[in-house]
């Protein structure tokens, strides 16, 4: 799509808004529709849009592939980590009530952290999928 000016300008203005919306869906997911998975796919669609318009190399400069691979694992580790911490504090695996002194505050904290883990993993894996597929496109 080399030199399409309108597409480039629109992408430049739209990508940050999409990322902002993804963050809203992520951290407001316990009050409004949304959550980790939705935020992850919305975030990755912003990077996909950028990659489609500006090319794979530009997108790789924004999010390096190594960081994505690390982040994909970190998300799952964060999720399991919450479970392990709640075990260490004397509860069952993934029982957030024991995380803090009051059960409700503990539940809230646990939900926010595991949603963050889900979001990080989903976003990284989706972007990785796109990069892996897009690299196989041979330049014309």
């Amino acid at each position: 799509m080399g030199n399409d000016l309108i597409l480039r300008v629109v992408t430049k203005w739209l990508s940050p808004v999409i990322i902002l919306f993804a963050l809203y869906v992520q951290f407001h997911g316990d009050y409004s529709p949304g959550g980790g998975f939705q935020a992850g796919v919305i975030f990755s669609s912003a990077i996909l849009l950028y990659g489609l318009t500006y090319g794979l190399d530009a997108a790789l400069k924004v999010v390096p592939e190594t960081a994505l691979k690390v982040c994909a694992s970190i998300g799952v580790l964060l999720y399991t980590g919450v479970g392990v911490v709640s075990m260490l504090r004397g509860g069952n695996f993934l029982n957030y009530s024991v995380l803090l002194d009051s059960p409700i505050a503990g539940q809230h904290l646990g939900i926010i952290v595991i949603e963050l883990g889900v979001g990080i993993t989903v976003a990284s894996v989706m972007i990785l999928l796109f990069f892996t597929f897009a690299r196989r496109v041979t330049p014309e």
């Binding site: 316990d30 959550g35 409700i104 539940q107 809230h108 939900i111």
Partner: peptide
């Protein structure tokens, strides 16, 4: 029990 208004998330 969870203090989260969005039931789907809870």
């Amino acid at each position: 029990e969870t203090g989260v208004p969005n039931l789907v998330t809870a």
